[in-house]
């Protein structure tokens, strides 16, 4: 697959640009976190497109951003479960 360039992305309508970026990101994320790939890809697509393009060019920065998203997700899930257990305790 040829690298995605800014001009290729800019040629697509805005609503399709996230889809195009997601299609590129998903397999890379799936290779690291198969069970969370859909969720993490969705989280990363919140970042603006120019930064996502840079991340696609730099495996290290993509890797660290994926791990950052996993950490945020884990904190969120722990706070959810602690809220649930607290609410069931009352």
């Amino acid at each position: 697959q040829e690298p995605l360039t800014a001009s290729m992305l800019a040629a697509a309508p805005p609503q399709e640009q996230k889809q195009i970026l997601g299609e590129r990101l998903y397999p890379l994320i799936h290779a690291m976190h198969p069970f969370l790939a859909g969720k993490i890809t969705g989280m990363l697509l919140e970042i603006d497109n120019s930064e996502l393009l840079l991340m696609l060019e730099s495996p290290e920065s993509l890797h660290s951003k994926i791990e950052e998203a996993v950490a945020v997700l884990q904190v969120h899930q722990m706070s959810e479960s602690s809220h649930k257990s607290a609410s069931t305790a009352f």
Binding site: Y26, F35, K39, M43, E46, E51, V72
Partner: peptide, 26 residues
């Protein structure tokens, strides 16, 4: 500086590639 992942992004919709069919091992 790169954008950090915001806590709010946990509410972002999940993304699956077009034509994705979940395999039941997920």
């Amino acid at each position: 500086a790169p954008t950090s992942i915001s806590k709010l992004s946990v509410n972002a919709p999940e993304f699956y590639p077009s034509g994705y069919t979940p395999d039941f091992t997920d």
